[in-house]
Each structure stands twice: as structure tokens, then as C-alpha cells.
Write a protein that binds this DNA or RNA. Structure first.
Length: 397
RNA sequence: GCCAAGAUAGCGAAGUGGUCAAACGCACCUCUCUGUAAAAGAGGAGCCGUAAGGCUUCGGGGGUUCGAAUCCCUCUCUUGGCACCA
């Protein structure tokens, strides 16, 4: 692929919008100029999930082209709390916690961007300059914007309509984020679609203070595995720290019509190949391919193969997993409820009964229907609860 | 400081004296089916008890009542409006 083709792909794949325009940015990139760009990250939640990788991947592409990439830890802004997620008032992190979180973040992000070798990503903290600002300077920054400009933001409009509060400090947040761009003297910022407003405020400020352009690229927010907005309460995201088997399984639980999007946004698979695969394979096989690719990225090819075999074995062929928990019991005759509760396979006796009544507990392929009669177990018997819980019995004594 | 509204299960949100272990939606769990931990369909969802039944839950505490998520008092917190800002 020529550089120009690369640029074209970078500016179109997994991009929602480029400000001021794709053409303008393209021109700069083609000129061969090395630009400085950054991504801001939130240090209060260092647990990365697949959604975060979309923007990191974009960052990596620019890194590969030789541009200067900064990962900015928002240790200062984190204290204020981005109004974008209003519900959780963040607790103030200590400097030590911030450093630890940043490290955790870095360890996970390392799967996507490089922090070593030539042209490594630089890590910065915005408290470095935001801590030093005086009230005087803050007030001066504020003169560049009007209340109307800020109120135009959808979210605020919505809250006004609903009679919900808007904290004054929430107006300060975009301002601080904007100042980051000035302080680092960047040419570009990349962020999720939800950050558009904040990033554009930065663009304004760079224009006013430095008298030049700051480009902004917004990338799409990855939808959760169920096709809804990814969210904590929905339990529909995939943490990068998940085991290979879990990532594989969670991808397999993806809605069929999200598969292409995940390929596009989460893998390095060439778009053309995805399109042709889409025609060749049935949705399940295509999804398996996707799961494989993603596990490969965050674990290894070997792990991916293992995860795939395991999935086929356990879920497609209803077999037993290769590794399962072992529980010890001392007698052949067991009360099934006691056995489940004692070994923490279920959380309460009521739950155990419920599961048995629903026919979800098997021992050696035999469904347990009655929780009153004692059951017979052998050494090596396998208890299977629901879809995913397995335990092997180790008979002692 | 004053006035008002509100606090219900993981989240959102009904319920305004007994039929409320608490509707509904989302998430969750199970089963059936299948091409998958997909979709679809069916069911479940406090705890203890084989069961009958019992016990603990609707911000905290106290009260009224045969009986309270529901009424009263009080406290805490959230929010809106007003006032103060000499």
C-alpha cells in the first residue's frame, strides 16, 4: 500500500468525522509534515474494553506513519468529572493512584500502540499545566467562549428541558480540555464521538490563542455485544483483561449484524477481505473468524486457536471443557443442594432449588430432577450447571 | 435561610393503608429450538424450609394501625425555585 492509500484508509475507516474537513487534513498529511496529535484518557477507570481500542487503533495508525503521538492522562480533569457521564461524581484520586492507573492503562494499551522502539507514544499528565493555572488565566480563557455556545450542546439542552441541573464546573471541563491542546501545542486530537464538543472547544481555543488549525478526528463508539450502547449497567462490553475463552465466547454472543462493524473497528483485517469473507461464510463462521482475530490481538494466535477449539468442544458439540474446577467430597451419597452450596457453585439454597427445578443441573449428563433424594457421585463425575458452569468431583476418603 | 418535589430491587420506573416479596422496561439466570454464550419462543428471579409456612426487604430512626413501600414525626441526602450575598 502506498502512503497515499494508507492515508486514505486512515481517514476513512473507523472515522465518523474530521474537522474542519477530511480534505484539509489529507493535504497536511500528504505534505509529509510530521504532526503532533493526542488522545485524552480518563485515569479513574483504567479498565480498558474493546470500545477503547477503536480510538487506540486510530492512534496506532498515525504512530505507524511516523507522527508524534501523545497519550494524555487526564489526572486533573478527572477530578472535575466529565459531564458526559454525570451520574458518577468521581472521587479524587491520589497522585499515586493516578500513576498506578496510568500504568494499568498502559499495560493494556500496549496491545494496540507502542510505548517503546522508535517513535514511541509519549505519556503526559495534564495536571502538569492545569495545576499551575491561576484564576486570572482561567477567567481569560473563559473570555473566548460564550454561555450560548456551551448551552447549545445537546446534553445541556436536554437537561434544561428536563429541569435537571447543570453544574457550573461542567462548563469548566471543556475549557480545561481545550487548554490541553494549547499547552501541548498539538495539531490534532482524536477521540470518541461523544467527545466531539470538548474537542471542538479545543479547536476554537487553539485558533484563538495560537492562531492556527487543530484538526479533530472523531471515531465511532463501538456498540455493545447486544447492539445497544455499551454501558456498565448493560454488561455488554468486553474487557481486554478477559481470558481468551471469555473474549471468544463474548464475541460469539455478538449480534449477527454487528460482525462487520467489529471487524472494521476492532481488527486490522483489510476491509476488502471482510467483504469477501462475508459472502463466503455463514454468519456463525464469520463470527468465529472475528472472535479468533480479536483473541489473537489481545492474547496470541496460539491462544486463539485454543479458545476456538474449546468453544467448539463445549458449546457446539456440548462437550466438557478441558479445564474445570475440582470440588472435593467425602461421600458417594450427597445431597445435591448441600454439595452445590458448600462448594460455592450457587449462591444460596433457594437458588440451587430453582436451578434444579428448571432442569439446569446435570451430573454426568443425567439431569437432576429432584433435590430431595441423595445423589450418587463417582470420582471424576462432572456437575454441569446451566450453560457455562462445570465442576469435577474428587472423591476422597 | 424559605418554599416545593423526591429517595423503591443491578439500572430506569410503577405502586399512595390489606389481594406487595413489590407491576413494567433493560440487564441477568434457566429451558426449548438452532448455525453460536446469536436470533426466536417459554419460564425464573430475597432468604430459610421437602412442604405447609416462616423471616428480612421499598433512604435512616421513631410512631399511628389488627395491618404500612403507602399515614404522621424526625433525621440524612438529592434536586428545583426564591431569598441573602452592604
Amino acid at each position: 500500500m502506498s502512503d497515499n492509500e494508507k492515508i486514505e484508509e486512515i481517514l476513512s475507516r473507523g472515522v465518523v468525522k474530521i474537522y474542519p474537513s477530511k480534505e484539509a487534513l489529507e493535504k497536511v498529511l500528504r505534505s509529509g509534515k510530521r504532526i503532533r496529535l493526542y488522545l485524552g484518557i480518563d485515569p479513574s477507570n483504567p479498565q480498558l474494553h474493546l470500545g477503547h481500542t477503536v480510538v487506540l487503533k486510530k492512534l496506532r495508525e498515525f504512530q505507524n506513519l511516523g507522527h508524534e503521538v501523545i497519550l494524555l492522562v487526564g489526572d486533573f480533569t478527572g477530578r472535575i468529572g466529565d459531564p458526559t457521564d454525570k451520574t458518577s461524581m468521581r472521587k479524587k484520586l491520589t497522585h499515586k493512584e493516578v500513576l498506578e492507573n496510568a500504568k494499568t492503562y498502559q499495560n493494556q494499551a500496549e496491545k494496540v500502540v507502542k510505548f517503546d522502539g522508535k517513535n514511541p507514544v509519549k505519556l503526559k499528565f495534564n495536571s502538569e499545566w492545569l495545576d499551575k493555572l491561576t484564576f486570572n488565566e482561567i477567567a481569560e480563557l473563559a473570555t473566548f467562549f460564550t454561555v450560548q455556545q456551551f448551552l447549545e450542546r445537546d446534553m445541556y439542552q436536554k437537561r434544561i428541558k428536563e429541569g435537571k441541573p447543570i453544574g457550573l464546573h461542567e462548563f469548566l471541563y471543556p475549557l480545561m480540555q481545550a487548554y490541553d491542546s494549547v499547552a501541548m501545542d498539538v495539531n490534532m486530537e482524536i477521540g470518541g464521538n461523544d467527545q466531539t464538543f470538548n474537542m471542538l472547544v479545543g479547536r476554537e481555543l487553539v485558533k484563538s490563542k495560537l492562531g492556527r488549525e487543530k484538526f479533530v478526528i472523531t471515531v465511532p463508539l463501538l456498540l455493545g455485544t447486544d447492539g445497544q450502547k455499551m454501558g456498565k449497567s448493560l454488561g455488554n462490553y468486553i474487557p481486554l483483561t478477559d481470558s481468551a475463552n471469555d473474549i471468544y465466547g463474548k464475541i460469539m454472543s455478538l449480534h449477527d449484524d454487528l460482525v462487520y462493524q467489529y471487524f472494521e473497528l476492532c481488527t486490522l483485517f483489510p476491509l476488502q477481505s471482510i467483504k469477501s469473507l462475508e459472502k463466503e461464510l455463514n454468519p456463525m463462521d464469520l463470527k468465529k473468524r472475528l472472535a479468533f482475530e480479536i483473541v489473537k490481538m489481545y492474547h496470541s494466535e496460539k491462544e486463539a486457536q485454543k479458545a476456538q477449539k474449546e468453544f467448539e468442544k463445549v458449546f457446539q458439540n456440548k462437550g466438557l471443557p478441558s479445564n474445570m474446577e475440582t470440588i472435593s467430597c467425602s461421600s458417594k451419597n450427597q445431597n445435591i443442594i448441600d454439595l452445590l452450596v458448600k462448594n460455592n457453585l450457587v449462591s444460596s439454597r433457594s437458588e440451587a432449588k430453582r436451578l434444579i427445578e428448571q432442569g439446569s443441573v446435570d451430573i454426568d449428563e443425567q439431569t437432576i430432577k429432584d433435590f430431595q433424594n441423595p445423589i450418587n457421585v463417582k470420582n471424576g463425575s462432572v456437575i454441569h450447571i446451566g450453560k457455562r458452569k462445570f465442576a469435577k468431583i474428587n472423591l476422597i476418603g
